[in-house]
Write a protein that binds this DNA or RNA. Structure first.
Lengths: 154, 154
DNA sequence: CTTGACCCTGACGTCAATGTGAGGTTTTAG
DNA sequence: CTAAAACCTCACATTGACGTCAGGGTCAAG
């Protein structure tokens, strides 16, 4: 398969694929005329790479991780890296959850049944970590709103 | 309080605070000589701003959101924005979870009790979405490893 | 053989939240 | 009073994963 096909199937640009190759994340055969050729499996590999990029891993880190995907074995160094990146991701998820909760508090206040009731600041929307709000975990308030917004934005 | 104190308490640089002001996210009084002065509450406000930045919201979006923190009311536009950003964050968390699971699969394989058993690719580590692995949700494998890595990296 | 779609290699542009340094004023501690 | 520490305003540098344009080959179809 040529680069355009891979790009299409993996949902990325050809520029991205050449960049991955430049970074050592992806290899390709070449036709006599110099055009890149990939095996089918490249599609999944690109998707994995993209997943890591999306998760905020820099290319240098991905480069260190990929060999252990290929060999199925992890050196001690790679092992540490795997673990520390996992921790990083976990921390990032916590940060996102915190921001989401802040938004939820704002939505709650904006949705307050009696708008006259909260002139501004009885409990500021950004109060530091109100544990009473932390009992609920996943869905959050105003499901209908979020659902409709999903329709709008996804 | 002056800028250095706020920066210290909020855990950001003075440069960041001046940038926030430049972007309209933060206001300050000035002493006759021109030095910035902030109320105590600025610390929490900066922390909120940082939380949003960490969650990937761009300053322009934060700028649209903050008024509704201040007034406790959200215009329809702001409301849509709140909802769509909440969705964005939720999607980002899902992406992080997917990457974390990919790492977990790699860790599992690297930790495989019989390393000789998986020469490379019986089930590639990056197999697309193995639902059997999705039953477990939060903690993941190799707790001890992750715990020790936490000690190392946090 | 030619046209249009695809591919190639540079190489510069982008965007956003800061970092950093220059050159100068203000505040604070002694 | 003096020196250090903190502040001020420009304004250019950084980082990373691409976008985009230039200038030029390649490949299938008609």
């Amino acid at each position: 398969m040529r680069i355009g096909e891979i790009a299409h199937q993996a949902g990325v640009s050809t520029r991205a694929l050449r960049y991955y190759e430049e970074q050592g994340l992806l290899t390709s055969e070449r036709t006599p005329s110099g055009q890149r050729t990939y095996p089918e499996s490249a599609v999944e590999r690109v998707r994995l790479i993209q997943q890591f990029f999306t998760a905020g891993l820099p290319s240098r880190t991905i480069l260190q991780l990929l060999p252990c995907v290929d060999t199925g074995h992890a050196s001690p160094k790679a092992f540490e890296l795997l673990a520390s990146e996992r921790n990083r991701i976990t921390a990032a998820m916590a940060d996102l959850a915190a921001a989401r909760d802040a938004l939820d508090r704002m939505i709650d206040i904006a949705n307050h049944p009696t708008p006259e009731h909260c002139p501004a600041l009885r409990e500021p929307a950004w109060a530091p970590y109100n544990p009473a709000d932390a009992t609920r975990t996943a869905p959050g308030p105003t499901e209908a709103l979020v659902a409709s917004a999903t329709l709008i934005t996804m």
